[in-house]
Design a protein around this nucleic acid. Sequence first.
DNA 1: CGCTTTCCCATAGCTTGTCTATTGGAGTAT
DNA 2: ATACTCCAATAGACAAGCTATGGGAAAGCG
Lengths: 110, 110
Amino acid sequence: MGKRLDLLPGTLDLLILKSLSRIQPMHGYGIAQYLSSTTDGVFEVDEGSLYPALQRLLLEGWVDSEWGKSENNRRARFYSLTAAGTRQLRKDQAEFDRLLEAMLRVLRPA
Amino acid sequence: MGKRLDLLPGTLDLLILKSLSRIQPMHGYGIAQYLSSTTDGVFEVDEGSLYPALQRLLLEGWVDSEWGKSENNRRARFYSLTAAGTRQLRKDQAEFDRLLEAMLRVLRPA
DNA sequence: CGCTTTCCCATAGCTTGTCTATTGGAGTAT
DNA sequence: ATACTCCAATAGACAAGCTATGGGAAAGCG
């Protein structure tokens, strides 16, 4: 972790799925805003990370999408969780917790 | 995080530096054992991850090394933190805490 | 009305980090 | 003798994120 990171690598899919589980449907730009605002600007997701990630999630069948109009009257693609996406979210969150607990044992030993 | 991971990507350098800050000097194999045992087997660091990481840390000047004999009388390379390594550890740990706090705001919203 | 800014999507190419797989050697136990 | 554990290292593949770029359409501004 020598340099400043935008997020913990490997957690972007989890962050997106979790965001969608709170607000649904939401377009890509909105997801980025949601993450930025709920983290006070810590997570500024690059578009070059976000949109490929959304493509991955579509391919996996964890989200689906439909085109529509944003609140600002722009053309936007709205994403929603599928049933499989909800299951995946639970898995990812459990896996994250498992790794985090191990991390903390190393970082904050008794 | 679709698959089972060995550790949180991007945190290996931090884990190594932290390990060395507890026990020093320590050889590569010993670091892997230390991480495995303090995490009850959650972190099983592959050799193909560990040794390149140690090379990185050497190059950055965050650790130095000298050859010697292990407890089992094997030829082994012992690593220690440098002053720069100690500073880097503090930075990495602060950065990890920053990102973790943001993660938790997303994952466990009030 | 033209111009700029904001909103929103998307891809190509590079880089970094981790994993898989393999090599290799020296000490110990059977 | 042979096998097993200990210890180191690298090459090659792959996944994921970042940089950079391009584009279009609505809104705001001079």
